[in-house]
C-alpha cells in the first residue's frame, strides 16, 4: 500500500512542480504584457512629451512655468459690462504672454544653421 501511495505521489509531485513553474511564468508574462501596454499608452497618449523627468531633460526640469500662475476667470456670477471688461483685460494679459514670443520656428533646423548645407551654396 505504501508502494501504491509512493507510486501515485510521483506523478502528482511532477504535476505540482509543473503548475508552479507555469504559474510563475504566466505571472511574469502577464506583468510584461501589462508593462508593454503601459509603455504604448505612455507614448501614444502624448504623456511622454510632457514628462521632463526622462533622461536628458534634467537641465530644464525646474524651468517649467507653475500652473497656478495662470489667473482664471470666475465661472459663476452675474454678467454685466464690468464683467466683460474684467474678462477682456484678463484675457489680453494672459494671451500676450504666449503670443508675444515666437516658438518652433523651422529656421533653427535649416541646413545652414546646422552646417550641413552644400559647400558654396548661396541659399
Amino acid at each position: 500500500m505504501s508502494e501504491d501511495h509512493s507510486l501515485a505521489g510521483e506523478p502528482n509531485k511532477a504535476w505540482y512542480q509543473t503548475r508552479i513553474v507555469l504559474f510563475i511564468g504566466g505571472s511574469i508574462g502577464v506583468a510584461l504584457l501589462l508593462v508593454l501596454i503601459s509603455m504604448a499608452l505612455y507614448v501614444s497618449s502624448g504623456a511622454a512629451q510632457l514628462d521632463l523627468s526622462r533622461p536628458g531633460y534634467q537641465s530644464v526640469q525646474n524651468k517649467v512655468d507653475p500652473s497656478d500662475k495662470f489667473k482664471s476667470f470666475p465661472a459663476s456670477g452675474t454678467v454685466n459690462e464690468a464683467t466683460i471688461d474684467q474678462f477682456q483685460k484678463l484675457y489680453q494679459d494672459q494671451v500676450n504672454k504666449v503670443t508675444a514670443t515666437d516658438a518652433f520656428n523651422p529656421d533653427v533646423l535649416s541646413n545652414q544653421a546646422l552646417g550641413i548645407d552644400a559647400p558654396g551654396a548661396d541659399q
Binding site: V64, D65, F70, S72, A103
Partner: peptide
Amino acid sequence: TNDALVYVNRNQSYFSISDKLIAR
C-alpha cells in the same frame, strides 16, 4: 531639450486659455 520645455509651457498655457478663460 529646449523644445520639450517650450512645448510643456506652451501646452499648459494654451490649455489654460481654453479651460480657465474661454470655457469659463
